[in-house]
Every structure is written in structure tokens, then in C-alpha cells.
Design a protein around this nucleic acid. Structure first.
Length: 286
DNA sequence: AAAACTGACAACCGCTGGTCC
DNA sequence: AGGACCAGCGGTTGTCAGTTT
């Protein structure tokens, strides 16, 4: 396949072979192309993508057709903001599997690996950058596991239970003298202790698109994660979480939107009060 | 108002592993 | 056994819309 010219992905230019035949289109898909692909796959089903490209009359590669179908045209693909519980699940699953986007996507119905990957890169990695630490560092993972995820769960719980105005840190104020696990309820501490998600329970985690199911989904996750570790509040891993030189917590003051998921009710999670909370968590040096 | 910057997302590329002949 | 082909995965890049200066 020599002689074709690579173009930018957004220019929708056509490429040719040396003999001038066999034009291959690249770049954004047109509505007409979408329609052709949609019609063909609906009738003939997925698979054999090179054949799909050929038989549907599309001047695209099989790869391109597959990607367009999976990431955009598939009927069950979800679009729009990633909800809080989906974010929670992504953080949780990523802590277990790393950049196994397709595997993670299996537990977020309607979300594609590409979307999750983009979310991770644009939101999570940005946070790590602002903290001046590597996204794969223990430092950052600890921050996620022991501070942000429990905090997130607490916010979700609070939102799902309007009669509960118990502050996030209330539990730790009573039970955790060193305040290392502020905001973590006992079940959450179990949940995110040594082994956040039991692999054989993972398929039980269900995430739906309905906001009204938010509390239930989180509950499912909690139950799935509620292992018999009994590691609260003396989990050795909690002890190992300490403030590292160079961890720029103040950077969070200017960061927002990670958790908001497009829901304005979550704006301000990183308010002064929350910044104080984070600093307590991160700078309580052992 | 316009230029510069940033974030989000769509799409492409290279690589890998599986299957078939 | 091994080569060809294909699907899928993860990383990267380009574009565009929105925001900031």
C-alpha cells in the first residue's frame, strides 16, 4: 500500500494508491457514511470489518468502520457527561487494572474504551499533573484510594440521602484520632482497604444511565467491595499514606470539574472547606 | 473584538494476539 | 510450523468549541 499520503484526522481528505484507484477516505465521517454503515451493520451484523467496508460501499478501512460503529453508531452507546458513579467506577477499576480500557469499559455499559481513556487523560491525569506527581505513583493512587474515592462516595451518599446532613469528616472525628481516614465510613473503609474490588464480584457491579439509580449503583459497588478485611482504621496502607515533598495540594484550589460530571451540584467540591480537608489528609505526616 | 490558550473528543496508527490455511 | 490476514487494544494526534487574556 505504497504511495498514499497521510493527512490529519480532521481534514477528511481522500488518499489514493499510485494507480489512482481505490480511494480511501480518512477524517471525520459524514452523515451519509454513518447512514451507510449503520444500515449495513443493522442488516448484516458486526464483524468482518474489511468486508463491511467493501460491501457497504464505504471508502474506508475496516478498522475505521469498526471504530466508528463501536464508538459512535452502536445503538447502545451512551453519550454525554460521565456520571459520578461512573467516575467512581473508573477510578476503582483503573486502580486494579491500570490502562486496560476495554476491560474497564465492560463494566460501564454504553461507554466505550475510547471515551474512558479520554476521560482519564483529560480529567484524572490533569489532577495528577497539578499535584506534581505521576498518575501511576503510589502517592497519587493513595490520594485516590484514601481521599478522593471515599470523599466521592460520601458525596453521593449525602446526595442520595437528603435527611442526612452528617459532615463527611464526622465519622473520623469520633473514631480516628489521627484523622487519616476522615470522611470514610466503616463500610467504605472496608471497601477501599487493602483490596478495593473483589474480582469475582466485579460482574455484579451495575451502572445504569439513570440518575435516579445513582444511590443504588453506589450501594452495589460498596457491597461488592465490602470485603472482610477489617482494616479500618488501622490499615497499614493508611499509615503509609503520607504527605510527600512536592505534592502541590494548593494546585487543587484552581481545579474543578473532575467530579462534577456536568452536574452543577458537584461544583465546589474543591471549595475552601474541601481544600482544608484534603490538606488534613495529605499533610498529616506520620 | 480578536488572538491565544485549553479541554474534550473523534479518529488514526502501530502493535499484538488469535485464527485459518 | 509458519505465514497471512484480521480484530482488537492502547497510545497518540488533530480539530474544534469554549474560555481567557
Amino acid at each position: 500500500m505504497a504511495g498514499h499520503v497521510k493527512t490529519g484526522c480532521g481534514s477528511a481528505e481522500q488518499l489514493t494508491h499510485d494507480d489512482g484507484t481505490d480511494m480511501i477516505r480518512r477524517g471525520p465521517w459524514t452523515a451519509e457514511e454513518d447512514s451507510m454503515l449503520n444500515t449495513y451493520v443493522t442488516i448484516h451484523g458486526e464483524g468482518r470489518w474489511n468486508s463491511v467496508a467493501r460491501c457497504a460501499g464505504l471508502k474506508r478501512t475496516g478498522k475505521s468502520c469498526r471504530l466508528r460503529w463501536l464508538n459512535y453508531l452502536r445503538p447502545d452507546v451512551r453519550r454525554g457527561n460521565i456520571s459520578l458513579k461512573e467516575q467512581l467506577l473508573i477510578l476503582e477499576l483503573h486502580s486494579r487494572w491500570g490502562n486496560r480500557w476495554s476491560k474497564i469499559a465492560q463494566f460501564l455499559p454504553g461507554r466505550t474504551d475510547n471515551e474512558i481513556k479520554n476521560y482519564w487523560r483529560t480529567r484524572v491525569q490533569k489532577q495528577a499533573k497539578q499535584l506534581k506527581c505521576d498518575v501511576n505513583s503510589k502517592q497519587f493512587r493513595d490520594a485516590m484510594r484514601y481521599v478522593w474515592i471515599p470523599r466521592m462516595m460520601e458525596r453521593i451518599r449525602a446526595a442520595s440521602d437528603p435527611y442526612s446532613d452528617q459532615p463527611a469528616a464526622a465519622y473520623s472525628a469520633d473514631h480516628c484520632p489521627n484523622n487519616r481516614t476522615a470522611g470514610v465510613t466503616p463500610s467504605q473503609a472496608h471497601a477501599f482497604g487493602t483490596d478495593p474490588v473483589d474480582p469475582h464480584l466485579m460482574p455484579a457491579i451495575s451502572v445504569t444511565s439513570s440518575d435516579s439509580s445513582e444511590a443504588q449503583a453506589v450501594s452495589d459497588l460498596t457491597e461488592c467491595c465490602d470485603l472482610s478485611g477489617g482494616n479500618y482504621p488501622d490499615n497499614p496502607q493508611n499509615r503509609s499514606f503520607s504527605c510527600q515533598p512536592g505534592l502541590d495540594i494548593q494546585a487543587f484550589e484552581h481545579s474543578n470539574g473532575w467530579f462534577d460530571g456536568g452536574d452543577s451540584s458537584w461544583d465546589g467540591l474543591w471549595s475552601d472547606e474541601n481544600m482544608w480537608f484534603l490538606q488534613q489528609q495529605l499533610c498529616d505526616v506520620v
